[in-house]
């Protein structure tokens, strides 16, 4: 008998074979690298004031400006590269806030049950039925739209679905016999949550975090598009907003819209793919998400078994 590999390594071995998850991971890593090395990658610094002539406004893509220029004559590529920073910062931090609140509420409601659960879940329901986005818009508009406020508002309103998911997972873990065994040993609630409940809810939390990132990115872009962005920071939503409101359409400057739009799609897609890939690996019972298209699903639809081709 050889010792079993540590969980991390065996996880990586399965995950590596998950094409969808790997694509998502690579896409996300590329986006993060682009944001981190923005000063190196961007041909111009979009925060530097530049002298522009009338010809520089909405100039089509050219060797000096591969993605063209915007309404102020600034390089779209540089703004695009710097804009990834805001989306990622908001995405990550807001989703951490959401998942932290959702996790704490979900685990305590599921584990303790009774009145506490009732209270917490009714509160969650109330938060769940309030339309998120209008409230986010309202709160950001009432407070100063700076990066911190945007992160807080998106994070503090985005935890409801996580709380419900975590609670249901906690309920099912709580029913398992090893929790009863821990009680029989004499373990207290805190010990049981830390050693038995949390580690088994964690995979769900990780998956959920990744999926919530994409939601937060979308929310941030939508806010910026509505003009509720931090005016001192370039973001993709803000670029879209400027292009949209400052005549890019009538000028035919499609590049000013396409670049930030694709950026948002890229980020959201990467998080969704990664999240679903993780879900499949961490929760093998799901095997294939009903929305994902993998080789297994194609094979199943065609009614054929996955067999190596003849001559392989």
């Amino acid at each position: 008998m050889s010792p079993s590999p540590p969980p991390i390594r065996s996880f990586w071995r399965t995950f590596r074979r998950n094409r969808m998850g790997m694509v998502g991971a690579v896409m996300l890593i590329l986006a993060v690298l682009m944001a981190v090395f923005a000063p190196v990658l961007a041909p111009y610094n979009p925060y530097q004031p530049t002298r522009v002539t009338i010809d520089d406004i909405y100039a089509p893509p050219s060797p000096e400006h591969p993605f063209g220029t915007d309404d102020a004559g600034k390089d779209v590529l540089s703004s695009f590269i710097y804009g990834a920073r805001v989306s990622l910062i908001v995405g990550f931090f807001a989703s951490f806030i959401s998942i932290f609140i959702g996790g704490v509420i979900g685990i305590s409601a599921g584990f303790y049950g009774g009145k506490l659960e009732n209270g917490l879940m009714r509160f969650t329901d109330i938060m769940l039925v309030i339309p998120d986005f209008p409230l986010i818009v309202l709160l950001v508009a009432l407070t100063k739209p700076n990066l911190l406020n945007i992160i807080l508002v998106i994070g503090l309103l985005g935890w409801t679905s996580s709380a419900r998911l975590v609670r249901s997972q906690t309920l099912s873990v709580k029913q398992r016999k090893f929790v009863l065994r821990a009680r029989a040993i004499g373990a207290g609630n805190f010990h049981i949550i830390r050693r038995h409940i949390f580690p088994l809810v964690l995979p769900l939390i990780v998956v959920n975090t990744v999926l919530v990132i994409s939601l937060a990115v979308l929310n941030e872009s939508a806010l910026s598009f509505l003009g509720l962005s931090d005016p001192t920071k370039i973001s993709w939503g803000q670029m879209l907003n400027f292009a949209f409101t400052r005549g890019a359409m009538s000028a035919g400057a499609w590049w000013a819209l396409v670049a930030p739009g694709l950026g948002i799609v890229w980020l959201v897609l990467s998080c969704t793919l990664l999240g679903q890939g993780l879900e499949q690996v961490l929760n093998p019972r799901l095997e294939t998400h009903h929305l994902s298209v993998g080789s297994k699903m194609v094979a199943r639809m065609m009614g054929i078994k996955e067999t190596p081709a003849i001559g392989d």
Partner: peptide, 22 residues
Amino acid sequence: MQVVRRHVQMIFQDPYESLNPI
């Protein structure tokens, strides 16, 4: 009660369920 618990231990029916899988 903790002291008593130490002297009384339980063996459960289902060895597939009563061990934490991770």
